[in-house]
């Protein structure tokens, strides 16, 4: 089991999670996550070599239904929640660099 998490690891995980931290926050999170990982380490005391993992406790397998299209959201209501819209579409900043500059 990985023993610790370094400041660089924390910065890397932040980039995976699409989060940015300033220097002070990065230090604080490194300390806090290190502390919490010591808690996680206690699991290594448990012998799980012959144990199947449990990812869900539902007795269900799958509920299947007829594949019938059902249009029950109104486009305008959905668009009303978008931060920016144009021409009945959700507007986002340029995806390709340079286009908007």
């Amino acid at each position: 089991m990985a023993e610790t998490i370094s400041r660089d690891d924390v910065a890397h995980v932040a980039s995976l999670a699409k989060l940015a931290f300033d220097e002070a926050k990065l230090d604080q999170f490194t300390d806090q996550l290190t502390d919490i990982l010591t808690l996680f380490e206690t699991l290594s005391e448990v012998d799980t070599s012959a144990v199947e993992p449990t990812y869900s406790v539902t007795p269900n397998v799958n509920h299947l239904r007829e594949d019938v299209a059902d249009n029950w959201h109104q486009k305008q209501e959905l668009l009303a929640n978008s931060p920016e819209e144009a021409a009945d579409l959700i507007k986002v900043p340029a995806i390709i660099k340079g286009e908007d500059d």
Binding site: A17, L33, V51, T54
Partner: peptide
């Protein structure tokens, strides 16, 4: 904090030691 812990636990290299291990302990 929880997004960071989760992203870390699911990341390559940590998945077996954390996420899978936790799911096994859940079984117990």
């Amino acid at each position: 904090r929880r997004i960071m812990l989760g992203t870390f636990s699911l990341s390559a290299g940590a998945y077996d030691a954390f996420f899978k291990k936790a799911a096994q302990v859940r079984t117990l």
